[in-house]
Write a protein that binds this DNA or RNA. Sequence first.
RNA 1: GUGGCCGUAGCUCAAUUGGUUAGAGCACCGGACUGUGGCUCCGGGGGUUGUGGGUUCAAUUCCCAUCGGUCACCCCA
Length: 426
Amino acid sequence: MSPGALPGFRDFYPTELAERSYIFRGWRDVARRYGFVEYDGPPLEPLDLYTKKSGAEIVDQLYNFRDKGDREIALRPEMTPTLARMVAARANSMRKPVRWFSIPQLFRYERQQRGRLREHFQLNMDIIGEADVSADAELLAAAIDVMSVFELSSEDVVARVSDRRLLNALLRGIGITEPQMAAAYAALDKLDRDPREVLEHRLAAAGVGASVSAQLFELAGATADEAAFTHIVDAAGATAEWDDLRRYLDHTESLGVREWVKLDLSIVRGLAYYTGIVFELFDAKGELRAICGGGRYDTLLESLGGVSLPALGFGMGDVVLGELLKSRGRMPVAEAMVDVWVAYGDAGSVEDAMRVAARLRARGRSVEYALGNQKLARQLKAAHTARARETVVIATPELSAGEAMVRKLDEKGERKVQLEAWLEET
RNA sequence: GUGGCCGUAGCUCAAUUGGUUAGAGCACCGGACUGUGGCUCCGGGGGUUGUGGGUUCAAUUCCCAUCGGUCACCCCA
């Protein structure tokens, strides 16, 4: 087999590009409706933009190299550091809160699997300069509306939300110490995957006692019963955090997306910089990787750009979303692109056909005709293969009377038209 | 980065368990069809069987390596 694209990279043939464009259109449509404006930055950045302050785990998976100017640079693996830099540079002059979105192509040097390549496009939506949970609700609603615009419902996709502050307070409340926190998070993250004994063993290794780890497991499942959960929250002294989260959930109700949302303390976003409410979108069948993930990162702008502004955002990749749309029959197949096919009935009318094509194109129609001198039967066959919506035959006898034959796609008969009038209305 | 499984035309798959020149459908191109498409019939291009070694009289088939894909780890966008 001839060598294709590099591993983890994609060739976008017209069919695939049509699908990509469909996704991009949906993204831009939702972003616009939520008042977000589009920005972009360079695909190459200084390496230390990622190595210095961002999560250390990202660094092992960078595409990085030294350029001819002896600079250490990297292909961007995520958009947030670029965003932070750009916003920080003009923070004082921008109306807050900032609502920005971007569709960058991002790169990671990782072994590829289904739904995870070395390159992908990712919708990033961020709100900067608003600390209230109403911003969190707004952002989540936008992410969910993206699902809606692709005709997915809450039957297809679930939004799982958690809150770092609430979870921290609860964990402290049951007796998890700061050094044990990482192990506790890891255990929560693996709750669905690893058997409980394994998790208990790991927690014990981190110094977490049996009774504490028992409470930990209880916590994760406790959110189903709100009254009982409130008890746990009160006992842990996390009332303020819980109130915030409940207000957030109320907002999602008003924004019309509450039915998609499920409180789930076991979701642990990997990135170290999240500080508050976090969320993930999953397909309800649980077949695919996360569709989307995001949350609040109130301290990141300060550490990256030196400007203290609360912020939150999410990233949604095109790969998993595309697979979901295809598997649920929500990916439209590319439709006919050609509006009119101009056929010539004889060699003598080729120039006339070209003139007709030119006039239609000037009117904004997409027009194709057979290059080279082709027989009419062949031209008509080609028109059909191209799925041209309409085919007009320009031929000398009719043309001398100012007429032409027109036939619509998949229709049996043809009709004779006055060419001038037809050109004006097509 | 670690381990399991899988690699035959653009796509979906064959090839009598190692046996002659690797086939078919779809797709594509052309002919039948010198002013009327879709149907039909006929023809054509396209493969160093992912690649490189090895075993054998003989390898798509068995072995090793490598590359690619995939799944699980790892990690997460």
